[in-house]
């Protein structure tokens, strides 16, 4: 079903910004906006904004998160506020009874299956929900990402307060967002997961906030190259 096209909430804005699209797992994703080298350089030197809303986002509610994590990934569930790498997924503990699992677009279905199978074997209520389509996922990549976020959110983005592989939930540009930090190599990078309907507004607001530090759009190809 190749002509099956899923669009991210940022599709219209990316098209306006001159994005060239590519097909990944049925999604039309913005491959690049300008020259990939220029985009990569901007991300490394200052800060860039990219739309990865096709990434998998699964939430799990319940009190057996330790048991579930052990069963599915043979890993220990991270403590509240922390993130951890797992096989084909990252685990982020939002609350003692809430776990967020993020994956690449192509690994969502497989991860859901493993989770549901493991949950069925455990007693007590576990609710596994695929939020992939419900949340936009914008990434701020680059050394100035913390400064730009510091113009939109009251959290402390200093290295000690918000280390790599940490998760916080707060208000960003007056909208509720889950904020993940997952650096790409040495380049600091923060992901904003929030209501899909607010994705375009958030993109426009973040772009304007970072105008004076040279914030520019970043395509998928440049991200993979970082």
């Amino acid at each position: 079903m190749t002509e099956l096209y899923k669009q991210t909430p940022l599709h219209a804005i990316a098209a306006q910004a001159g994005a060239q699209f590519t097909d990944v797992d049925g999604w039309q994703l913005s491959q690049r906006f300008s020259a990939v080298e220029a985009e990569t350089a901007a991300a490394r030197a200052a800060v860039a904004l990219t739309d990865l809303s096709a990434n998998g986002k699964i939430t799990i509610e319940g009190h057996q998160l330790e048991a579930l994590t052990a069963a599915v990934w043979q890993a220990t569930a991270p403590a509240v506020g922390a993130g951890a790498a797992a096989d084909k997924a990252y685990l982020w503990r939002l609350r003692p009874d809430h776990l967020l699992v993020t994956t690449a677009p192509e690994d969502v279905v497989a991860t859901l299956t493993r989770l549901n199978r493991a949950a069925a074997a455990l007693d007590g209520l576990l609710t596994i929900t695929d939020l992939t389509h419900g949340r936009s996922e914008l990434w701020l990549v680059g050394p100035a990402s913390a400064e730009v976020l510091g113009r939109l959110c009251g959290l402390n983005f200093g290295p000690a307060a918000f280390p790599n592989l940490a998760v916080r939930q707060s208000s960003v540009a007056k909208t509720a967002q889950i904020i993940l930090r997952r650096d790409i190599g040495q380049t600091p990078a923060f992901a904003l997961l929030g209501a899909a309907s607010l994705g375009a507004y958030l993109w426009e607001t973040v772009m304007q906030a970072g105008q004076d530090v040279g914030l520019a759009p970043l395509g998928r190809q440049a991200v993979l190259g970082l």
């Binding site: 219209a12 939109l152 007056k174 899909a196 309907s197 607010l198 375009a200």
Partner: peptide
């Protein structure tokens, strides 16, 4: 400061 008035758009807005 910067004008920030959140607006929600459906997938069919465009």
């Amino acid at each position: 400061g910067q004008n920030m008035e959140p607006v929600k758009r459906t997938a069919l807005d465009a």
